[in-house]
Each structure stands twice: as structure tokens, then as C-alpha cells.
Computed example of a mutant assay.
Amino acid sequence: MTDAARGHGTATLYEASAEAARACDPALRAAWPGARVAGPAFTVQGVGGDNLALHRAVAEAPPGSVLVADLQGARHGHWGEILAVAAQQRGIRGLVVEGGVRDTAEQAELDFPVFARHITVVGTGKDHPGRFDVPVRVGDVVVRPGDLVVGDADGVVVVPAEAVPGTLDRADARVLAEQRALEAIRTGTTTLEYYGLPTGPGA
């Protein structure tokens, strides 16, 4: 995980966000095991079945950003090995796409993180230039330019830009609290005892 999220995963950020973070549809998932990404969103509004917008986005997105693309959930392989290599050369951290991708084994070898709704070999056209830096809908969540996007094995979470500093501070505190809990549990304290939970019916 990059330091854009201070190393925190999606579950921690979601719980620490004071309800600011939005969890994307669980069907939007890592295209290969172990994929992890965190960074500010560079948003892309394209047309399903066409990937010209993604080619243009790779050329225009600033280094350190995560491409977040709405391709209307289309079952097409909008992104593959060539675009992943091009994105890495530009310093782009990863891709979250409402649509499909391909070449997942190759992208795993490249260690380029991709989160998508579909994996498919169906090809695309290159006719629609798309729009950038506009609000897009990905995994049932509206993502705005600059929002923090974090993806890992548990899913994809979006933290609004204005809520990022407070969310990260609370996530730091949450991790410390969890570490104390784990230390107690490893010495024999039950979770019921540690959290003061009811111990039986009617308790």
C-alpha cells in the first residue's frame, strides 16, 4: 500500500472515516490476488466498449494518481498489459474501472494494481475521447477528482478529499487500539472481556 493512505487498508479507513468513506460494490474487485492501491483519483468518463479515453488518460494523468474510470460496467477488456506498462512509465499508481479488463496474469507480474467489475477478452473500439476531472460513478459510488481511492483484497473504498486528513488520523488511532486489543487477547483475555460484551442470554 502506498503512503497516500499511511499504509491503512480499506476496512480500517472505512471504520475510521466517521461515515465519510463510501464502500464500492463488492463486485468491483482486484483483478489479481494481492493487488493494493491508494492515491488521489484522476477521474475518467468514457463509453463502454471503447478504451480511447483510457489511452488519453494515461498520457494526461499526473504521477501518483489512480485512474478511476466509468465505462458503464461494459463487459469488454478495456485495459491490458500495454496500458499497464504505459501507466507505470507515467507514474500512475493503479486503475479502478467500472467495466472489464484483461491480461490479468501479466499485470500481476508487473505489480500493477487493477480493480474491475469484469475480466474478459472481448476487445474494444477507439473512437470516444472521453472526459476527465469530472465526477464519475464507479461501483455505485460517485468519485470526484482528488478523492482518496484505496483498494485491496477487501474491496475498494473512496474517501472524499476534504475528509482525508481526519480519516487518516482516526485510522492511526484505530490501529493502535487494535494492537492493544490483540496483545490482551494473545495473553488470554477473551474478546467478551476486552470489549465488555454481554456474556449470555439476557445479560
Rank of each mutant, 00 (worst) to 15 (best):
T2K: 09
D3Y: 09
A4D: 09
A5T: 08
A5C: 13
G7F: 06
A18L: 04
A18T: 01
E19C: 00
A20E: 10
A21S: 06
A21F: 01
A23S: 04
A23Q: 09
D25R: 11
D25Y: 01
D25A: 02
R29M: 00
A30G: 11
A30V: 03
A31K: 04
A31S: 14
A31W: 06
W32V: 03
P33D: 12
A35P: 14
R36F: 04
A38S: 15
G39D: 09
F42S: 12
F42G: 08
Q45T: 06
G46W: 11
N51G: 02
L52C: 08
L52R: 09
L54R: 02
H55E: 12
A57R: 06
E60Y: 00
P63A: 15
G64A: 11
L67P: 03
L67W: 03
V68I: 10
D70T: 02
Q72G: 13
G73R: 07
A74K: 03
R75I: 10
G77V: 13
E81K: 14
I82S: 12
R90L: 07
R93L: 15
V96W: 05
G99W: 02
G100V: 04
G100H: 01
G100M: 04
A105M: 06
A105D: 15
A105E: 15
A108Y: 01
F115P: 05
T120G: 10
V122M: 08
G123T: 14
T124S: 01
T124C: 12
G125C: 07
P129G: 12
P129E: 13
F132S: 11
F132V: 06
D133C: 12
D133N: 15
D133H: 12
D133G: 13
V134S: 08
G139I: 06
P145W: 00
P145A: 06
L148T: 02
V149Y: 02
G151P: 05
G155E: 11
V157R: 00
P160D: 05
A161K: 13
P165I: 07
T167W: 01
D169V: 14
R174V: 01
V175W: 00
V175F: 00
A177G: 10
Q179A: 13
R180G: 14
R186V: 10
T189V: 15
L192F: 09
E193P: 03
Y194M: 11
G196W: 15
